[in-house]
Amino acid sequence: MKRWQKTAALSTVLGAMLLGTTAGANTNGLGSVNDPLVTKSYVDQQIAKVSGGSTGGGGGVEVESTLKVVQLQTGQQLIGQAGTEIIVRTGQVKGLVSPGGDGLSDVTEGVDIRGTRVPANHLILIPRTDGRGIEVTKGPSSILVRGSYEIKK
């Protein structure tokens, strides 16, 4: 068999394999009415509809997806919901425990804070929405917060 005949035969075989693969790939209905392909902008619009289109909460509750600087004075409390992250930057702050006596998670040290002073520059996590948070004992205090919270005076 001559070289050009081998090349032609190989091209024919590869072409048949490609057509078979293409035809087989389309049998699962991708792009059909029952399983449409959508654009990223369409998906983003649908997610915005479900989430209300913003990060702001209602009823005096703030929701943030980025770290926000909050200034608190002596006696003010920041009450977080489950998953809220807190970092104390300045001032003296104590942890507020839940009615059952459970505390805050100090992720930096790996300990539970139960009504004691919250160390500066430690990542604190609110594990449940049950009234846990922080209270400024000596202010003013600068706090970094990510998540849902409310400030009580």
Results as ranks from 00 to 15, higher is better:
N28K: 07
I124N: 02
R3S: 08
N34Q: 09
A48L: 15
M1R: 07
T90E: 10
A82E: 14
G53K: 08
G58T: 15
Q71A: 13
Q73L: 12
I151A: 08
G80Y: 04
L78K: 06
T7H: 04
K138L: 09
T22H: 08
T39I: 10
K152T: 11
T90D: 08
G53I: 02
A82S: 12
G29T: 06
T27D: 11
G20A: 04
I151C: 03
A9N: 06
L10K: 09
A48Q: 14
S98I: 01
V93D: 06
Q77M: 14
N34E: 13
G52M: 10
K40N: 13
T66C: 06
G133D: 05
Q46H: 11
E62H: 13
P99Y: 07
S142C: 01
I87N: 05
G147V: 00
G103C: 07
L125H: 09
Y42C: 00
K68A: 09
A23C: 08
S41N: 14
I151T: 08
G139R: 03
R114S: 05
T129A: 01
K153V: 10
V111H: 03
L30R: 11
I47N: 05
T137L: 06
K138H: 05
R132A: 05
Q45R: 11
R89W: 00
K6Y: 06
G101K: 06
T12D: 07
P99S: 02
T90G: 02
Q71F: 02
G110E: 03
A120E: 09
N121E: 13
T74N: 11
I87Q: 12
V97P: 03
G56R: 03
Q45H: 08
Y149G: 02
S54Y: 07
V97L: 11
S51G: 11
M17D: 00
V88I: 14
T108Y: 04
G58Y: 12
N121K: 09
N28W: 03
V50A: 09
D106W: 09
L144G: 07
K138P: 01
Q92T: 15
V88L: 01
S98R: 10
T84A: 07
Q45K: 12
L30G: 11
S65C: 06
G103M: 03
S65E: 07
G101E: 07
R132D: 02
R128H: 12
P36W: 02
G131H: 02
L78S: 03
L37K: 13
A16C: 12
V118T: 05
G95E: 00
V118P: 00
R114K: 15
Y42L: 15
I79G: 01
L96F: 02
V43G: 01
V50Q: 13
G115K: 06
K152V: 14
G29L: 10
I134W: 01
N121C: 00
V88K: 01
Q71M: 12
T39Y: 08
M1W: 04
G53E: 07
T66K: 11
I79Y: 00
H122N: 15
I126V: 15
V118H: 06
S41M: 04
G56A: 14
D106K: 03
T90A: 07
G59Y: 09
S32D: 06
R3C: 05
K49Q: 12
V13Y: 00
G58L: 14
D130C: 02
G60I: 06
E64A: 12
G100N: 15
A9G: 05
G80W: 03
N28C: 10
V136L: 08
Y42P: 01
D106Y: 06
T108N: 08
V50W: 14
Q73V: 11
